[in-house]
Amino acid sequence: LLGRRRALLDHLPYDCSITDLENITQSIVKSHLETCQYSSEDMKRFTWVQYSPEETRAFQNKSAEWMWQQCAHHITNAIQYVVEFAKRIAGFMDLCQNDQIILLKAGCLEVLLIRMCRALNSNNNTIFFHGKFASPQFFKALGCDDLVSAVFELGMGLCRLQLSDEEMALFSAAVLLSPDRPWLTEGQKVHKLQEKVYLALQHSLQKNGASEEKLDKMVSKLPIMKSICNLHVDKLEFFRLVHPETAYSFPPLYREVFGS
């Protein structure tokens, strides 16, 4: 597929010029920046605010239910920004609403995982959570060490790629517009949109002198992202069995997106 995309960039489809790709890039970057919860400048300001060992211990000693509630709340908040991002991608709102919902349900956590690298401090393996930077051990009360470490590992891998806002924006849009999500009614339309976004990403990488392998490295993260999303759903299902009432009190949007 990637080889085909490279060839496509040399022989663009008849309905897509370099100017089109640059317009797509510009509009998606704008949407991304308008819907990011924190600007890069905000994150730089927060970088040195770490949880103390005492604060970390206090969070570790919270109940699983309390910690799940906090995380569900933060994820729900972040999902609302992803919905806004999707709405501003040219062509997304032209899809039927059934497909818009399928794409968001299937792709919003993957987009959050990409966006997460802005909230990571790769120097000390911490993530911005609840106002300060937290280590993986901070989330012990969730009882999901494997999920947490997989998320951190992916985040560090994405940080190593040093994605620019432009690359992050286009990659997020491409992931959201995955035509292989089950039950899509207009898969071909989604496929065409994704193709253009990937071409725009390829063009942007070439223009900015990125290495040939950067796109391959970005795309190679997709299976890990998918497995993290599946693991999250497994953990949620197990949590729901053990604490049905707490799970029922999670934000309705969270339950809607991650319900079966």
């Binding site: 609302q80 919905v83 806004e84 609403q97 919902i101 309705p252 949007l253 809607e256 997106v257 319900g259």
Partner: peptide
Amino acid sequence: KEKHKILHRLLQNSTSPVEL
């Protein structure tokens, strides 16, 4: 539609998440 009423609402309304 009932199953995804919040997503429907978010997709339909024009407010930004900051205002929600």
